[in-house]
């Protein structure tokens, strides 16, 4: 789970790295974005001028690496004006994050 905004810290990227590593060893892994973390999923991020790589483009490699799903907390998306139309492709909207968490054997927050 990533509940922190992109680019501010390295916490989220470390979580992404962990998810990719689990996928590399064929562990079933999904990522849930909640709170300000949903801002990872906004389309058309252009971080060239702050000398960083686009977290959205990094995330687009997740299905290739074997990450099963990218979930977004619907309430947080509404708060930040995010809809499936202005988010990156392949995001699954999740009305109840707490219910989703019960479907997983293990859940961990980034940071």
């Amino acid at each position: 789970m990533i509940d922190q905004s992109p680019y501010g810290t390295w916490v989220g990227r470390e979580a992404l790295d962990m998810a990719f590593s689990l996928a590399a060893f064929d562990q079933a892994v999904s990522i849930l974005f909640t709170d300000t973390g949903v801002n990872w999923l906004r389309a058309f991020q252009q971080p060239n001028d702050i000398a960083q790589k686009s977290v959205a483009k990094n995330l687009s490699a997740a299905p290739i690496f074997g990450v099963e799903a990218l979930y977004a907390d619907a309430a947080a998306c509404r708060r930040y004006g995010l809809t499936l139309d202005n988010m990156i492709e392949g995001v699954v909207m999740c009305e109840s994050s707490s219910e989703l968490l019960h479907q997983f054997a293990h859940a961990a927050f980034a940071g």
Partner: peptide, 8 residues
């Protein structure tokens, strides 16, 4: 496309 090298 992804701005990242395959990590492993």
């Amino acid at each position: 496309t992804h701005e990242v090298s395959p990590p492993s």
